[in-house]
């Protein structure tokens, strides 16, 4: 009972990357998660290089070829041409950049605002919490699409305005999520320990509470990416989002709707691209939740 140190030395030493490796292993075990990761990787690839790799870059800028209108899929045009004779594949490839970047911006802005509001509400408590959360509830009562339409209509169409419009309805989900997490983590012993060593409120929030809430936020972000892309496309589809000639999936669908069903290929490629991206982000999000969110795992 007198020796204190010997017991320590004989304990097996765990490798540092142990936890990460186990998480990655679990992720790889799940075929759907891996499929999601590969799909997202492809989407990201086209986001970066879609415009550069497009076979008919002149069509992206708005060039038309009236002699080649409504050509069905062929080797030259795998997804056919549209009413202006533009190559649908090129437009969709270039549209990836617009749609995904718009979706990403919306999710990022929503996360930043939501995390800020939720963290302050959960950490401060009292009337600050009350005010911020009622504001959140208020925003949640307005249907997202309607609010986005109203804002987009007020600000006018365009890339930036559309992102502002959607972001305004996007943050409340994050505010609620983060507030809940902060309320839970705030009661942890290590937060009390931080208080006991004299840590300032901002240090407690930034160093001890927020880092322990990132997992569910990341999961929600990846799940939300798909919805955000759909929302962007939805606004484009009803004509108050991004306007032609900027190629964007929702806008492309909207235009091709008039030529259905005779020229079905004009709608097929943007539709499939959207399905592919949304499905990929959802699979990835589910996979991430399985490895990151201990509550869902247990």
């Amino acid at each position: 009972m007198t020796d204190t140190a010997e017991h320590i030395a004989t304990e097996p030493e765990l490798p540092k990357q142990d936890k990460l490796q186990r998480a990655l292993f679990r992720f790889r075990q799940s075929r759907l998660s891996m499929l999601g990761a590969v799909m997202v990787a492809l989407v990201v690839f086209f986001t970066a290089f879609g415009t550069l790799l497009a076979p008919f870059p002149e069509h992206i800028a708005g060039g038309v070829d009236t002699a080649a209108r409504f050509q069905p899929p062929s080797w030259a045009h795998p997804f056919g041409t549209n009413e202006l004779g533009q190559d649908v594949l090129s437009l969709v490839m270039a549209g990836t950049t617009v749609s995904v970047l718009a979706g990403l911006s919306v999710v990022l802005i929503g996360t930043v605002i939501g995390t800020l509001v939720g963290a302050i509400a959960g950490f401060a408590g009292g009337w600050i919490d009350e005010i911020l959360m009622r504001l959140t509830d208020l925003t949640l009562t307005i249907p997202g699409l309607i609010l986005a339409m109203a804002v987009a209509a007020a600000l006018g169409p365009g890339f930036t305005n559309m992102i502002i419009a959607i972001s305004l309805s996007w943050w409340p989900g994050y505010a609620r999520l983060v507030r809940g997490e902060v309320l839970a983590v705030r009661e942890e012993s290590y937060v009390n320990a931080a208080r006991a060593i004299g840590a300032s409120p901002s240090r407690i929030l930034l160093r001890h509470i927020l880092p322990n809430t990132v997992s569910p936020i990341i999961v929600k972000m990846s799940l939300d990416m798909g919805f955000a892309i759909l929302m962007v496309a939805g606004l484009g589809f009803i004509g108050i989002g991004i306007r032609p000639p900027t190629p964007e999936w929702g806008t492309l669908l909207s235009v091709s709707r008039s030529y259905m069903p005779d020229y079905w290929w004009t709608a097929m490629a943007p539709g499939m691209a959207m399905f592919f991206a949304v499905f990929g982000f959802n699979l990835l999000g589910d996979g991430l939740r399985d490895i990151l969110d201990p509550k869902a795992r247990r």
Binding site: S189, N192, A193, I197, P211, N212
Partner: peptide, 14 residues
């Protein structure tokens, strides 16, 4: 200074 009861909960995992 204080040492808490539960050593599993009183260290920040991050």
């Amino acid at each position: 200074q204080i040492v808490f009861q539960d050593p599993y909960a009183s260290l920040n995992p991050r």
